[in-house]
Amino acid sequence: MERIVIATRRSKLALWQSEYIKERLLELYPNMTIELNEIATRADKILDVPLAKIGGKGLFTKELEIALLNKEADIAVHSLKDVPVEFEEGFKLAAVTKRFDPRDAFLSEKYSSIDELPQGAVVGTTSLRRRMEIKMLRPDINLKDLRGNINTRIAKLKAGEYDAIILAATGVQKLQIEDEVKYFAPISTDKMTPSMGQAILGIETLDNPELIELLSALHDKDAHIEATIERDFVRVLEGGCQVPIGVKATISEDNQTVKVDAIVGMPDASEYIQDSTTVEIGKFETVGKEMAQKFIAKGAKELLAKAEKVAFQ
């Protein structure tokens, strides 16, 4: 192939991610022409309603998939946490990139950490998972919806609408805007379990063997293992994107084992199921599914059904 067109959303973060993939491809194939096709998705246009009420995270990928079908692009670059666990027929997840920082982050102009927040402080997030995990750490916190791109969210924090906000650390780091707020503090995954695939980029294509082979050079083995476990866990739970599920697979330093931490529950943390397991790395293709079955046996599907009703109220 001599030319590749990348379908991308127009947000600064999405453009950074697509430019990152473009640069990686040009390192491998310096004579190739690579262009970006910027697409405004519905989720980027509707900024005053929680995602759960307008169709979930699939909104971030659907228009890009249409561009692939219409031959307006060859590949689409996504934050993997936004990619539904089931693909429509004909689409493929061709590669996943090396994982960036998977942690959530605490941002504030006044306070250095969640622990430092005063009683009843206002914290901004629309993620049901983050709501649940913040309430587990600080039941007294008042949660307030927070939509918009990263820069918009930080502007709302600086305008005094929130005492603190919670974002994915990787987005802030990629845009190099950590210094725009007084306190930027990534939160240990021991305290807050991230979303499946958080901080991994996924490259989607139509089922094109030549293109998939070309993209295989970007595929990261460790990210593939961790993402497979996390996405299997969510797929078996049939959790979708609108419910509070955290799952993080972490490969050991010696590459022999993988630890899986997972949590599902209600957005207000009134009920939740939490567990972890460590297995040999060779079992990565089964451990996510097996862990999900254990959660199901503990009532996870019923709990998630209740949580989903709350999301649409």
Rank of each mutant, 00 (worst) to 15 (best):
M1K: 07
I6S: 00
R10K: 13
S11Y: 11
K12N: 12
K12F: 14
L13V: 12
L15Q: 15
E19L: 12
E19V: 10
I21W: 04
L26P: 05
P30Q: 06
M32T: 13
I34H: 05
L36E: 09
N37W: 06
I39H: 06
I46S: 07
L47D: 07
D48P: 02
P50T: 04
A52Y: 01
I54G: 01
G55E: 00
G58V: 08
L59P: 03
E63C: 09
E65V: 12
L68S: 11
L69Y: 11
K71P: 06
I75Q: 04
A76E: 07
V83I: 05
P84L: 01
V85C: 01
K92M: 10
R103S: 03
S113G: 11
A121E: 12
V122G: 07
V123Q: 09
G124D: 07
S127R: 09
L128T: 02
R129H: 10
M136L: 11
P139E: 06
D140Y: 05
D140A: 03
N142M: 12
L143K: 04
G148S: 12
I150H: 08
I150S: 10
N151D: 11
T152Y: 13
A155C: 06
L157H: 09
L157W: 08
Y162D: 07
A164E: 04
A164I: 06
A168R: 01
A168W: 02
A169G: 11
T170P: 09
V172I: 15
Q173W: 10
Q173N: 14
L175M: 14
Q176K: 15
E178K: 14
D179H: 15
V181P: 08
V181R: 10
A185T: 15
S188E: 14
M192L: 13
M192Q: 11
P194S: 10
Q198L: 03
Q198V: 02
L201M: 12
N208W: 09
L211E: 05
E213M: 09
L215H: 00
S216C: 08
D220A: 08
D222S: 13
E226L: 05
I229E: 08
V234N: 04
V234A: 07
R235P: 07
G240R: 01
C241P: 07
V243K: 03
T250K: 14
T250H: 14
K259R: 15
V260T: 04
V260E: 01
G265F: 00
P267Q: 02
I273H: 04
I273N: 04
K289G: 10
A300T: 00
A300I: 00
A307C: 06
A307N: 02
A307Y: 01
E308T: 02
